[in-house]
């Protein structure tokens, strides 16, 4: 009786979790692969098998290319700002010179992270507004009025305007992660370096960076994966436009699936997204797995 109870209860305890994960995370994943081989829409009850034709279409689709390039731009810029800049910011904030003001600044930098993306995007709609927008009014105020353009309406600037908003929102987040990592560095290292007369910049390169190497790598991967998945920002700000100039893979997937009712093709795009992100995720597992002693 006791033995049976001991076997049953742990299983019962974990069962709901496994059900949730199985039903809402793993089955959809498999289902998505399956769907990629069919042509169907929301309101058609039957799915028509089309083999690899969706993937063939994917290869020849110019919009997919545009979207992929935009995702890559997103990733590169995010790595520069959210990773490189955030690391410098975190180092400065952790420097004892700024310890009075740092706690307050940390919270301030973190505020945008807490705010819903729809609020942020609506706010940036006002900032980028070509008529009364803060950005253009500011440029005029400082005498750079000739630089003012309709940021979201210009095919060359739209994707960058979207990316810029992401940086504004997320720098505080990655900075916080670096702060956590820097706080784990043994302080003796810096003290020793101080005694040796090494400057702040030397210390940054020879102590901070090597010591946070793991966090650096993980943050970079998080940022890149996030950039490959980005949906909310372009969807709300530009819906991929003008034309397809600020399209990303996720937005394109959504539009194919839900706006144009090509659920099968949308699934194929989702599969592409999965493959791209899975590669990064695998690297991430490998790296973080070796770093933790648990």
């Amino acid at each position: 009786m006791i033995a049976r109870r001991n076997r049953m209860i742990p299983a019962l305890f974990i069962l709901p979790s496994l059900l949730f994960l199985g039903i809402f995370i793993y089955i959809p994943l498999v289902q998505n692969f399956y769907n990629s081989f069919f042509d169907f829409s929301v309101f058609s009850p039957t799915k028509e098998y089309v083999g690899f034709s969706a993937f063939q279409q994917l290869l020849g689709d110019k919009v997919v290319m545009t979207a992929l390039i935009n995702n890559v731009k997103y990733a590169i810029i995010s790595v520069i700002f959210q990773v490189a800049f955030a690391l410098i910011l975190a180092t400065i904030l952790e420097d004892k010179l700024f310890r009075r003001i740092a706690p307050m600044l940390r919270v301030i930098y973190f505020i945008p992270v807490m705010i819903s993306i729809s609020v942020i995007a609506l706010l940036f709609n006002f900032i980028y507004n070509p008529q009364m927008g803060l950005l253009n009014s500011f440029l005029e105020l400082v005498g750079l009025g000739n630089l003012a353009v309709p940021w979201l309406g210009n095919a060359t600037t739209s994707i960058y305007a979207v990316i810029a908003m992401s940086q504004w929102q997320s720098i505080g987040f990655i900075t916080m992660l670096f702060i956590v990592a820097i706080q784990k560095i043994p302080k003796e290292l810096y003290e020793a370096a101080n005694i040796d007369g090494a400057g702040k910049i030397r210390q940054f390169f020879s102590i901070t960076i090597p010591q946070v190497k793991e966090a650096l790598f993980v943050n970079m991967l998080i940022t890149i994966t996030g950039s490959m998945l980005v949906f909310n920002e372009p969807y709300i700000l530009t819906n991929g436009g003008p034309g397809t100039s600020s399209m990303t893979l996720s937005v394109y997937m959504y539009q194919q699936g839900f706006f144009k009712d090509n659920m099968g093709y949308g699934s194929a795009v989702a599969t592409l997204i999965f493959v791209v992100t899975a590669i990064f995720a695998l690297i991430q597992i490998k790296v973080s797995g070796t770093g933790k002693d648990e």
Binding site: I23, P28, N32, N35, S250, M253, M263, T277
Partner: peptide, 10 residues
């Protein structure tokens, strides 16, 4: 993102 369409179906 990847699960969006299957979840919608489900």
């Amino acid at each position: 993102q990847v699960a969006l369409i299957p979840l919608f179906e489900m």
